[in-house]
């Protein structure tokens, strides 16, 4: 292997790593705020990619029906959780947030899709369809058991992943899709051939990370989310409701996941179940960051991406094995820092 191949591998790796980093951030965000290890973040990647692919084909994506279904599930979840304090106004709010909004989105999308709007509109529409699902999933699945242990939440999370993968197969079929690049520009820098798509991925990732930074560091709502992560009891005592933080965390995770799918879909063919593996790599990065540290998780994502890229060059068949086994030495190191006698929960 010479330097130029190495550089290409690094470029590939970093491009993929950007997407893993996004997912890792979403996982850290959701975990710190709600204690949910959001395994189905990968499904949002699939949904984002396949929704965009449908728009490119001038079709109404299957996610529109899914959005309506999840909206209803969200309504049921809210009715159940808030059953003790329901009022007329509350019912109206719930109806608007979980039934009317998805219906409007569905109407908009159904009207626009056949017209093949410009790519940027397609991307925005895809986000509009997929991102709210995060909130509905929180309302229907996680909020009713918000006080359960991390382990129960994890099992539920995995169960949700299974259900969503099944639904993805129903709504998108087994066919894979690949979308057109966000930018088909390209240029060479020394011996390195740089694609516009790589730059678009990196650029958008950096913009999103910056936006998240501003949100968490400058806005009171962002700080409220951080406060919930730091001290759940303290947050409640100042009047930050866990549902409020949870909803925002899941909405952000939905947006990030969908965006990850939109960014990755020109790079590789996405099937209904591809998101899981992509999500798991984000997950490896998040775990390396201890599920709490954003910078560590982002750094680990780069490590995962580059290792994956080199592994696929040297031993392409064992690529996945190598990537997932990165976790073992990391966990080993962590385990030696762990106090064994501490009682869990």
């Amino acid at each position: 292997m010479d330097l130029s191949i190495g550089l290409i591998l690094i470029q590939d790796g970093v491009t993929n790593a950007a997407i893993y980093a996004l997912l890792a951030l979403a996982l850290v965000l959701v975990f710190t705020v709600t204690r949910v290890i959001f395994v189905p973040v990968g499904e949002f990647v699939s949904f984002g990619a396949l929704t965009l692919a449908a728009f490119e084909a001038g079709k109404v994506p299957g996610t529109v029906s899914l959005l309506l279904v999840l909206g209803i599930a969200g309504a049921l979840g809210r009715l159940w959780t808030e059953r003790q304090s329901l009022s007329g106004r509350m019912l109206a709010t719930i109806a608007v947030e979980t039934i009317v909004v998805p219906a409007l989105i569905a109407a908009l999308v159904t009207w626009l899709a056949p017209h093949k709007p410009p790519q940027i509109v397609q991307v925005l529409l895809a986000l509009l369809v997929v991102a709210p699902m995060g909130v509905y999933v929180y309302e229907s699945v996680f909020r009713p058991i918000a006080e359960a242990s991390v382990l129960v939440l994890l099992i539920v999370s995995v169960a949700l992943h299974i259900a969503l993968v099944g639904l993805a197969l129903v709504f998108f079929g087994a066919e894979g899709s690949r979308t057109t690049a966000l930018s088909d520009a390209s240029f060479t820098l020394g011996s390195l051939f740089i694609t516009g798509q790589s730059l678009a991925v990196l650029g958008l990732t950096l913009v999103l990370i910056l936006a998240l930074y501003v949100f968490f560091d400058r806005t009171l709502i962002g700080k409220a989310l951080r406060a919930t992560a730091v001290n759940r009891v303290g947050a409640r005592l100042v009047g930050i409701s866990p549902a409020f933080s949870g909803r925002i965390a899941f909405a952000l995770a939905g947006i990030i996941g969908a965006l990850g799918g939109i960014l990755v879909s020109p790079l590789t063919t996405i099937y209904y179940d591809t998101g899981f593996i992509i999500g798991l790599k984000g997950f490896v990065a998040a775990i390396i960051g201890g599920l709490v540290s954003y910078p560590l998780a982002a750094g680990a994502a780069i490590l995962v991406g580059v290792i994956e890229s080199f592994a696929s060059f040297w031993a392409s068949e064992l690529k996945e094995v190598i990537v997932f086994m990165i976790i073992v030495p990391i966990l080993l190191v962590r385990s030696y820092g762990t106090q064994v006698l501490e009682d869990e929960e």
């Binding site: 009171l220 700080k223 409220a224 951080r226 406060a227 730091v230 001290n231 009891v233 303290g234 947050a235 005592l237 100042v238 009047g239 930050i240």
Partner: peptide, 21 residues
């Protein structure tokens, strides 16, 4: 509360601002 339950990794001012959330 007895344990104070502060947001220890955030600034004093942020703690106060969140108090008025």
């Amino acid at each position: 509360p007895e344990k104070r339950e502060l947001f220890v990794t955030m600034s004093v001012e942020d703690n106060l601002r969140l108090g008025g959330f």
